[in-house]
């Protein structure tokens, strides 16, 4: 009697879970930007989870097994690719034991495949004397909203394949996302009119898609070898360069080692813009549009402030 009861309860639970999984597509993304785009495209037909919290640098996400649990139930994995997640995603996939999202499966979506142009693809010989470089090119492409549109379309395609009855809805939402980006473009562009006349020193090449999109003039990087603490000699040469230039400003991410960026800004006597690395990295940037807004407003504000910062010897 008890056994029968248990079996019935178990059966009901299994059916309930199955019913739930039919209702919506379970999407897991690696970085928060991809999660925001997936939400825009999937709407109420998907449930989206991001593995890397917004404030954390995704180059160094610890491969916590609890993240593998999130992957275990996923129908679709949307990842950045270009080796951004190379230190941890393969381990998590192995622990997740989920054949729906393993490499080559329908639920495996490398979002970089949707791009038209990849920046900083190293030509000629590369080796790790250049630091822990991204050998397939710069992976931080979601910082250009134009790329976000391409990714949204790629996601809509794949979501439509996995969940064909909502195919039209996914395509329509990707189009709405594209329209929203187009509508904002003139505003974002105008906001950086003044910054476009300045020279920019980056902490790390993280910002190359953003500066490329906004046609900002990058003249150097503080962390010239990715993942490696910059040498004092290189920091000095960047300071010298900054002092020689007319109008120069510094951009760093909130997770960078800011004492170095601050020192460079102080000794040049210029403004430092500390930006959220991805959506949700700073308060009030959880939404992708708010995130891009924040990048633009912080850079515009720093560009307007350059003159007011005194030089520190």
């Amino acid at each position: 009697m008890n056994f029968t009861k248990t079996m019935i309860v178990a059966a009901v639970m299994v059916l309930a879970t199955a019913g739930q999984s039919l209702a919506e597509l379970k999407v897991v993304t690696t970085i928060s930007d991809l999660a925001r785009i997936a939400e825009a495209v999937g709407g109420e037909d998907v449930h989206v989870t991001a593995l890397c919290p917004g404030p954390r640098d995704p180059h160094f996400l610890p491969a916590k097994p609890s993240l593998a649990r999130k992957l275990a139930n996923a129908d679709l994995l949307c990842y950045n690719g270009l080796e951004l997640e190379i230190g941890w995603l393969p381990l998590l996939l192995d622990k997740a034991r989920n054949p729906r999202i393993k490499p080559g499966a329908p639920g495996d979506l490398d979002c970089s495949n949707s791009l038209e142009h990849i920046l900083d693809v190293p030509g000629g010989n590369v080796d790790r004397g250049m630091g822990d470089i991204h050998a397939l090119g710069n992976p931080h492409y979601t910082l250009d909203p134009g790329n976000a549109v391409l990714i949204a379309r790629g996601m809509a395609n794949r979501m439509g394949q996995l969940d064909s009855k909502n195919k039209a809805a996914y395509t329509a939402r990707a189009q709405a996302f594209a329209d929203a980006v187009s509508a904002k473009q003139p505003f974002w562009h105008d906001q950086l009119a003044e910054a476009r006349t300045k020279s920019i020193i980056l902490y790390h090449s993280h910002w190359n898609y953003f500066t490329h999109w906004q046609e900002l003039k990058v003249v150097g990087e503080i962390e010239n070898r990715p993942g490696i603490t910059p040498s004092p000699r290189h920091v000095q040469s960047i300071i010298d360069k900054g002092r020689d230039l007319e109008d120069v400003m510094i951009i760093a991410a909130q997770w960078d080692h800011q004492e170095v960026a601050e020192e460079v800004a102080e000794r040049i006597g210029t403004a430092l813009a500390v930006l959220p690395g991805y959506s949700g990295a700073q308060k009030g940037t959880e939404n992708y549009f708010d995130f891009i807004d924040r990048l633009c407003s912080r850079v515009a504000e720093a560009a307007a402030r350059i003159e007011t910062v005194p030089v520190k010897e």
Binding site: F60, G87, W88, L91
Partner: peptide
């Protein structure tokens, strides 16, 4: 360590 990128084992 040289060669392919190491995984950050947890």
């Amino acid at each position: 360590t040289i060669g392919s990128h190491p995984a950050h084992r947890y």
